[in-house]
Design a binder for these strands. Sequence first.
RNA 1: GCCGGGAUGGGGUAGCGGUGCAUCCUUGGGGACUGUGGAUCCCCGGACCCGGGUUCAAAUCCCGGUCCCGGCCCCA
Length: 411
Amino acid sequence: MVERLKGFRDFYPEEQEIRSEIFATMKESCRQFGFKEIDAPSVESIELFANKSGMEIMNQMFSFKDKGGRDITLIPEFTPTLSRMVASRKDLVKPLKWFSVEKFWRYEEPQSGRLREFYQLNADILGSESFFADAEVISLGGYILKKLGVGDVTKLRVSSRILIDRLIERNLPGKRDEVYYILDRWSKLTEEEREAYATEKSLNMETIMSFVNGKILEGVSDPELDRLYKIRDYVISSVGMEVDIDLKIVRGIAYYTGCVFEASDREEKQRSILGGGRYDNVIAQLGGDQTPATGFAMGDAVLENILKANGLWTQRREIGVFVAPIDQAGRDYAVRAASVLRNLGLKVDLNVTDRGISKQLDYAAKMGYQYVVVLGENEARKQSISLKNMGTGSQTEVELEKAGELISLLK
RNA sequence: GCCGGGAUGGGGUAGCGGUGCAUCCUUGGGGACUGUGGAUCCCCGGACCCGGGUUCAAAUCCCGGUCCCGGCCCCA
């Protein structure tokens, strides 16, 4: 048997239905915040990623030559595509608030929360440099987490590249990369490793600690810090989630220019569930007008881990009815009855086998149906349906024309 | 790319050099019954990841590969 490719997934119905609901929740939340959905190609010229994304991502792309010898790749991230879309339409009314849920591909070793093919929600606001834009985009992220039921077990952490850079220049001048490195990996490093790194790079451990615990902010007067406070307060009043200012959030991506943020489970056991920030220069770098931008991405893999860890990865009750004909008269009648029920807006699963009533009930139960419509000669003659409640076993007969009254029962 | 740990029917498992057809549970398919039986009864499928090697003998030991789980790098 041919095996599935490493790091790729099959989604069987029982999983896919849950996934669809989650994506629907994410999309609906975006719309509630006034974001518009967009979509874009899954394959792009490799050039699109060559400029901005740097060496690392180039090594992690599924890239190949097409039949015309062009170098193309499956998209590993969304920002370059988004930037192209914005750059090539000068008539767009700013600010733009766009979101998409797409598949992405990265050729790397699979591990917890990381796969070679994954889905990602991207939500961005383009054309506003105001803190409102950052705050609103972060609020959307928090809102989605709440809607998914994990608002109480996750937290938002915000920081700012500008602020961190200034603090570094003031306290550890010339050590930007080194400070970024140790802050970014802080929770992954052991006490000894931190000490060793600090010593090796001549970083004052006390100063590093003041970045880590936030003490370095005490008494600091800085407009970027004020901005960060405003963002934090806005998000707290907008979604009522825990929001911490945390200077350990630096995020490795080169292009962030201001506020950066992440959400993770409170214990930080998992990878971050979403991450993003302000990237004011990317669109200009890709040939567009200078356009301030802020946004985040949220992958499906870590989200799934967190939902499962909290018992929220559950299939909703199957809504709809299974139509089980008993005899030939019932089979003939079932076509019309099913049609009537479907036109009433019900989900109707009509038997497609030659099985008897017993096996049909068995099947309906296994498929999770709460109600079965049993049809036989009697029902056909009376133009009625017998509705069997699979939970209680009780059964009621109603006229087909009055089946609309059942809808409230079945929804 | 690197480092651990794994891999036995669809799912979960037992066996860990030779003992009767690789165990048990579950699941799947078919049939009997034919207005209630998601029941009952009967029948049938289905596995040692792949390739080498050691051995009289390999699911079992060794080597390589593949995939899975986790970690590193990196996190777009």
